[in-house]
């Protein structure tokens, strides 16, 4: 590249008046091996910038696991569904009894039947008591 052109670009560069393309031209000129001796003092500036451009981050990024929040939500949903199903089941379930309870129930039924029978017989007995009344009437007739 013409020396005059490079000087012109350099002047513009220091005035903040170059385009990105012109700046790239300057960088490539100063990165080359044919830099005019009088411009060599500027070389470190441009090669330095090129070196800075090469700097890279070496640490890996850590992002929070998104899965966790999803599964938490999911577990919550499943848990509430199970709970709802459980309550619904409890409310509609036929009472299932243990053998002991069944025996107790059977015993209760039998006792009740026995009491019923007793009370029936007792009532029959009570009906017979009507004759006592007859006996009273007859007695009154005689003992007037």
């Amino acid at each position: 590249m013409e020396l005059a052109r490079v000087k012109q670009l350099l002047d513009a560069y220091f005035e903040g008046a170059t385009t990105l393309q012109e700046e790239a031209t300057l960088r490539s000129y100063f990165s080359g091996s044919q830099v005019a001796p009088e411009l060599q003092q500027y070389q470190p500036l441009f090669t330095g910038i090129v070196a800075v451009q090469k700097e890279k981050s070496t640490r890996l990024l850590h992002l929070p696991e998104e899965k966790k929040t999803i599964s938490r939500w999911w577990i919550g949903a499943v848990a509430s569904m199970v709970l709802a199903a459980g309550i619904f089941g409890l409310l509609n379930q036929e009472p299932s009894l243990t053998t002991e309870e069944k025996e107790a129930l059977a015993a209760f039924e039998k006792t009740r039947e026995a009491f019923k029978m007793l009370s029936q017989n007792f009532n029959e007995g009570a009906e017979e008591l009507v004759y006592i009344h007859n006996f009273k009437e007859t007695k009154n007739k005689i003992l007037k």
Partner: peptide, 19 residues
């Protein structure tokens, strides 16, 4: 690591510092 890379041109480290 960067410094070593640019050692060939000692003016480069200087630009780093000047910035």
């Amino acid at each position: 690591n960067v410094a070593r890379e640019v050692e060939a041109n000692d003016g480069v480290a200087l630009v780093f510092k000047l910035m």
